[in-house]
């Protein structure tokens, strides 16, 4: 199908975007990499009056690697982050997760911040932002603010972003020194959306586990010190707490079982 008609704004600055959003609010949509929005437009799942193309804004394509983490601008493509050796050496868990985000052809255009703003419950990047305790920076005509991932990702395709706000940057903190990390995902085919995605950060035996694809937003929990003996019960309780959902890809029961099995394997390998 083809998109319904819309006006197209070719923004040249963040101020252009925030002015247009202030005027049009929910009738406007930001177009970043288009790898989710263009499909939604083509299927007429959304029919905005104004589409704001942000791809011409300078300086938003930077990746900054600092002592405390990496910061990416709104135009950093998923493929560009994956190819950034310094950033990926600092956060190998993101390098691993990015190989699961769609395909090479979609990563060439899809942005990191677009994935966060889209907030698909099974998306890898929102899961990692939450697991690592990161934040996004939101800009509007009213000013800018930073919102922690835990406050930003509120539910299925929904975030704490106000209709007049744009995500300008995302910050992924480094795990504590000496911590180990791992990522595992089950999907129908490599590159498909995850049925369940799991990320794990371990300091010694103390584990923080992030889970995507089970609840209507990613979840991260501190499991404390785990042992091979205590882990099954902790994961079982977690699986029941999250519940899971049935869809055409998998049942809720299957999703819970993946948490128990893949979760156990991932955690034991990470702390080993």
């Amino acid at each position: 199908m083809k998109p319904a008609p819309f006006d197209l704004c070719l923004a040249e600055s963040v101020a252009d975007v925030t002015a247009a959003l202030a005027e049009h609010g929910e009738a406007a949509r930001i177009l970043a990499g288009g790898q989710s929005l263009m499909a939604m437009l083509n299927m007429r799942l959304t029919e905005p009056q104004l589409v704001i193309d942000i791809s011409g804004i300078p300086d938003l394509d930077r990746i900054e690697v600092g002592k405390d983490g990496i910061t990416v601008g709104a135009l950093v493509r998923q493929a560009e982050l994956a190819a950034h050796e310094e950033a990926m050496a600092a956060l190998p868990i993101i390098a691993e997760a990015l190989t699961h985000v769609g395909h090479m052809q979609t990563r060439n255009r899809g942005t990191v911040c677009g994935s966060l703003a889209h907030a698909d419950p099974s998306a890898e990047l929102p899961l990692l932002l939450l697991l690592l305790g990161g934040h996004v920076t939101l800009a509007s005509a009213r000013g800018t603010r930073q919102v922690a991932a835990s406050d930003f990702l509120v539910g299925m395709l929904s975030t704490a972003r106000a209709p007049d706000e744009m995500v300008t940057h995302a910050h992924f903190p480094l795990p504590p020194k000496g911590a180990r990390s791992g990522f595992r995902e089950i999907s129908r085919r490599h590159g498909d959306f995850a049925i369940v995605a799991l990320g794990c950060i371990a300091q010694g035996n103390s584990v923080r586990l992030g889970i995507g694809g089970v609840a209507d937003a990613p979840v991260a929990v501190d499991l404390g010190d785990v042992t091979p003996e205590t882990l099954p019960e902790a994961l079982n309780a977690l699986a029941w707490r999250l519940g899971g959902y049935d869809d055409i890809h998998a049942t809720a029961r299957y999703r819970r079982e993946l948490i128990r099995r893949i979760g156990r394997d991932l955690i034991l390998e990470t702390i080993a």
Partner: peptide, 25 residues
């Protein structure tokens, strides 16, 4: 026309992309 099949793949500035997920503009 929603990015899944890859039949429409073209190269833009040397990168393979879905032409059904890009506006002509």
């Amino acid at each position: 026309e929603h990015g899944v099949c890859g039949a429409c793949t073209v190269s833009v500035d040397g990168k393979a992309v879905r032409s059904c997920l890009m506006l002509a503009a």
